[in-house]
Nucleic acid binder design. Sequence first.
DNA 1: GTTTGTGAAGGCTTTCACAGCC
DNA 2: GGCTGTGAAAGCCTTCACAAAC
Lengths: 218, 218
Amino acid sequence: MVAYKRHVDTANISELTISRLSIYLRCVDQLLEAGVETVSSQQLAKRFNLNSAQIRKDLAYFGEFGVRGVGYNVRQLRQYVVEILGLDRERRLVIVGAGNLGSALCHYSGFSGGNFLVVGVLDSDPSRIGDATPAGLLVEDAARLPEIVAQRQAEIGVITTPAAAAQTVCDRMVDAGLRAILNFAPIRLRAPESVLVKSVDLKVHLEELSFFLAHAEG
Amino acid sequence: MVAYKRHVDTANISELTISRLSIYLRCVDQLLEAGVETVSSQQLAKRFNLNSAQIRKDLAYFGEFGVRGVGYNVRQLRQYVVEILGLDRERRLVIVGAGNLGSALCHYSGFSGGNFLVVGVLDSDPSRIGDATPAGLLVEDAARLPEIVAQRQAEIGVITTPAAAAQTVCDRMVDAGLRAILNFAPIRLRAPESVLVKSVDLKVHLEELSFFLAHAEG
DNA sequence: GTTTGTGAAGGCTTTCACAGCC
DNA sequence: GGCTGTGAAAGCCTTCACAAAC
């Protein structure tokens, strides 16, 4: 077994591989909780409905983590995936849009827990500024985005505004120095190539389910 | 122009095509708001950062909606996409898990608006049962899932419980007759093939952004 | 002239299958 | 015996490019 390759050309690695690493992390956490110490790609695949060759290939991009004839050490594997995903240090988030979704996310365990920390919830609506979110943060003025990003060293912006405001908020986040943006507004955003924007349109998933219901025989 | 083909073999159509149809619907809605009456695939592509051949191909699976030399009638196109996605009738949702995310989603406009309607928010925690959600629904006992699904004719189940409870809730949703499930718990669910389960792990997206931040040069 | 709908080409991802190693 | 890491094959998806239609 060799250590995690730090100098892989990450530009050539598919986003699909990255999102699967994230999934593997959940699986490995479950195994750790269950006290499993060693796991083969086949066991992982069977247990979590994955493909064993794909697991091996995804991991092999970043180093040789396994032992032939044995499998992977679960604890070690977790640590490697954590390092690959950059989860070995805290990542701070700023949420813009203190509506239902925004205030729910700021104390959603996936968002404020583990390596992620919500350090600000902003809105441009004066009637919302000063409100307490369920997590105890106060809603602040969206105009203060640049200073909040700088002072609190936020790296990730989360957009939970209505569609009409999203592009403006995105532009301001880019100007404020945020390099990674998670967008929940149902609109396609434009941003410089140096900034990564991921959009999650929750309605798309519902509409996929609707398509399935409309066309499934039965 | 020919009408929407009702008898396409939907089993052969990629999920990617379906999720793009959903995106096209957002784009077409923006065009309608802007008063645009006709649009070509190239105009759509340029405006929303898409590929024109892909738009044409995605649409062509379901019929011949365009006029050569002209393009697509925006209003008509919207109607076709709505029919394809099965959005021409109401789809009722039941949410299980009245935590932060669950109660936020039940009055999130994407979830209770348009063709989707949340008809129940359930939890198994007695201390939550009876609580009012922001949308005015009362949290009901998760044990009543089967009767609520049947009486209110719910079709889609939404899981917003902690990971540990998600598989049990999923099994009960299947038993209650739900054929489409949207899962927000960070766990891989197992369900019969006749049921469509879509999982949305919000943390996966954050971790993808983290990977980008960790490896982007800068 | 313009644009659609589509076969063919190209590119990307997954899966297979096995050499190499334990 | 077992399992990983990986080239090769298969499958899938996107893009090109053009005939057919307006």
